[in-house]
């Protein structure tokens, strides 16, 4: 939903509320009561719903994640000039949308996870502003292969890859999350924020 629609609804809502506030006598009639109900309940509820949707959409954007100072090294890791670095290779080659790069692989974080994840999100904001958290950050639980498989499952390069098919158990373990894509010695070059001083960066778009 375009932000312009949200602003339009906000402006209309404030305008009709202003009518009720400045001329409350209009609510004396039956039609006026209905108008007041629309102005003070229906339109505000709609405006809040649209605003909430806008914020939820923005929370998926890469710039949203990187707005916190602590995430700056992770943003830089997307531009490392090394194809073995998984996030960089995905980001630079548009294997994930660049404007939603973080959310594409981290779909169950904070707002998008369980109640516990949402609570952690609040804690992260608190820590960002009132504490001094230090990188590197650690995952609360191992990275779930689901985040890789929601794109790679069914893809030819994945299903017919020589390493994946060397042993039938390998593929079964990958798909059942028994064998991690990231920590089994295969695709383990992820953000590596402690090594950013040792690498070159890609200056492209």
């Amino acid at each position: 939903m375009s932000v312009l629609v949200t602003y339009a609804v906000l402006i209309i809502t404030i305008a009709v509320i202003a009518i009720v506030v400045l001329a409350p006598a209009v609510t004396a009639s039956r039609g006026g009561k209905i108008f007041a109900f629309v102005a003070l309940f229906i339109f505000p509820a709609l405006a809040v719903a649209l605003g909430y949707q806008q914020h939820m959409d923005r929370s998926k954007e890469t710039s949203f994640c990187l707005s916190c100072h602590l995430m700056e090294p992770y943003g830089r890791s997307l531009r490392v000039d090394d194809p073995t670095w998984l996030p960089a290779a995905h980001y630079q080659n548009h294997r994930v949308p660049q404007d939603e790069a973080c959310y594409t692989c981290h779909t169950d974080y904070v707002m998008y996870g369980s109640i516990k994840s949402k609570w952690r999100g609040l804690h992260h904001v608190y820590a960002q502003y009132f504490k001094s958290p230090k990188p590197p950050l650690h995952l609360y639980q191992p990275f779930n292969n689901r985040e890789c498989l929601h794109c790679h499952l069914g893809a030819r390069s994945f299903e017919q890859g020589t390493t994946h098919t060397a042993d039938p158990e390998i593929m079964a373990d990958i798909k059942s999350n028994k064998m991690s894509c990231l920590t089994s010695g295969c695709h383990d070059q992820v953000h590596n924020t402690t090594k950013l001083n040792e690498v070159k960066f890609w200056e492209g778009q």
């Binding site: 932000v3 009720v20 916190c68």
Partner: peptide, 27 residues
């Protein structure tokens, strides 16, 4: 009605202001 309207309008103005932000604190 006036008090209700003013409170809702203030909340909506705050909402409009936060739509300029793209950070968790805005949310």
């Amino acid at each position: 009605l006036r008090i209700a309207g003013v409170l809702i309008a203030i909340g909506l103005l705050i909402e409009a202001w936060t739509l300029h932000w793209n950070s968790p604190i805005g949310f």
